[in-house]
Write a protein that binds this DNA or RNA. Structure first.
Lengths: 123, 123
DNA sequence: CTGCGCTATATTCCATCATACATAACGAGA
DNA sequence: TCTCGTTATGTATGATGGAATATAGCGCAG
């Protein structure tokens, strides 16, 4: 899981998220496990949703991010392409750079956040 | 409306968004119009939702971001506090810095995004 | 003192989305 | 040939969230 930075970054493709924390983690998990379903289980996500995210990824980019195989030794599996690895790596780098660029401001900002709060709805 | 940067930035408060594009725009609209309902209308958002966002803002920060008045000349109104203005200004600065820091990477990234996408279902 | 517009809040309705469940195709290996 | 785990997809149910609606309170203007 991505470490806590106090911020989230999302890359947009015509206002639609093309890459963000969730997709990046999913790609990493698929790379680790070699399977969409295993990655979904690890993230507490339904297989269907994970599959839909993979489908969306493969549609938004010029090259496939994940390739899949049906049947076979372990029933099949999924592989993150070299292209997918590059995309996720690039995104991680962007997260790091953005985080570094605003670190000072973020520190100032969080000083004005209530330290403890009643359970609040996520927005 | 905030200009298109190809990215979205959100400041988190214990994994819950404390500031993002939506809240920032809402604050600006309230400042411009002097009213929560007018700001909501301008954003095509229900009054209730806008009010809930204002409530969330005032709860998450150490000082109120928006103050309200009931009744009176124009039925009442809302004002963004100096503190609120500072928070939104700081956030805008963070957006700018983050955007600048990853501009080159973002340019490379978007080169791998499909220029045109299949017609998506309109809603 | 009545009307107006806005804040404030509860309630109800509805669309959306995610999860869960079901099913089929698939191919290596036992 | 039969099993197994996975991809792939459809369907249904449930939860979530937003919008619409309703109502009340407020205070200045007329």
């Amino acid at each position: 899981m991505g470490r806590y930075r106090g911020l989230t970054l999302r890359v947009l493709h015509k206002a639609a998220p093309a890459m963000g924390p969730g997709k990046a983690e999913l790609i990493d998990r698929i790379r680790q496990t070699g399977s969409i379903s295993a990655a979904a289980r690890a993230m507490g996500m339904s297989y269907r949703r994970a599959w839909q995210l993979v489908e969306a990824l493969n549609k938004t980019y010029t090259e496939p991010v994940v390739t899949t195989a049906i049947g076979g030794t372990r029933g099949g599996g999924a592989r993150v392409t070299a292209f997918g690895v590059r995309m996720v790596t690039l995104f991680r780098a962007m997260e790091d750079k953005a985080s570094a660029a605003i670190a000072a401001d973020l520190h100032r900002f969080t000083a004005y956040l209530r330290p403890s709060l009643k359970r609040q709805k996520r927005r």
